[in-house]
Amino acid sequence: MQRLNLQVVQLAVLSACQTGLGQIHDAGIIGLARAVQIAGVIRVLILKMVKKCHSERLRSISERDS
């Protein structure tokens, strides 16, 4: 993931159940969110929500940032 060129991406939304997890190292937490940032994404939003409202929240975030 971190080898991708994502410098044009301003916001990545990670919304699966365990996307915020990672391994703790001296440099901090190493996980998917950090890999996305290393690839160049400016902002990473990690969501953990109840499935019922999941799609509605993502839609409102998407519309707000458009």
Score class of each variant (00 low, 15 high):
M1C: 07
Q2A: 04
Q2S: 12
N5H: 07
L6S: 00
L6F: 00
Q7N: 09
V8D: 07
V8Y: 01
V9T: 01
Q10L: 00
A12R: 00
A12Y: 00
A12V: 01
A12M: 06
V13C: 09
L14N: 06
L14D: 07
S15G: 09
S15V: 02
S15I: 03
A16K: 03
A16E: 13
C17P: 13
Q18R: 12
T19E: 13
T19C: 11
T19W: 02
G20H: 07
G22D: 13
H25M: 06
D26G: 02
A27N: 13
A27D: 14
G28N: 07
G28Q: 13
G28D: 13
G28M: 08
I29H: 07
I29Y: 10
G31K: 11
L32N: 05
A33C: 04
A35F: 12
I38V: 14
I38K: 02
A39F: 10
A39Y: 05
A39R: 09
G40C: 07
V41E: 02
I42H: 14
R43K: 14
R43Y: 04
V44F: 05
V44S: 06
L45V: 13
L47C: 12
K48R: 15
M49T: 15
V50I: 12
V50C: 08
K51M: 11
C53W: 08
H54I: 05
H54K: 06
H54N: 03
S55A: 14
E56C: 07
R57K: 07
R57W: 08
R57Y: 09
L58M: 14
L58P: 02
R59D: 11
R59A: 15
R59G: 08
S60H: 13
I61D: 06
I61F: 12
E63T: 11
R64F: 08
R64Q: 11
D65I: 09
S66I: 03
S66Y: 04
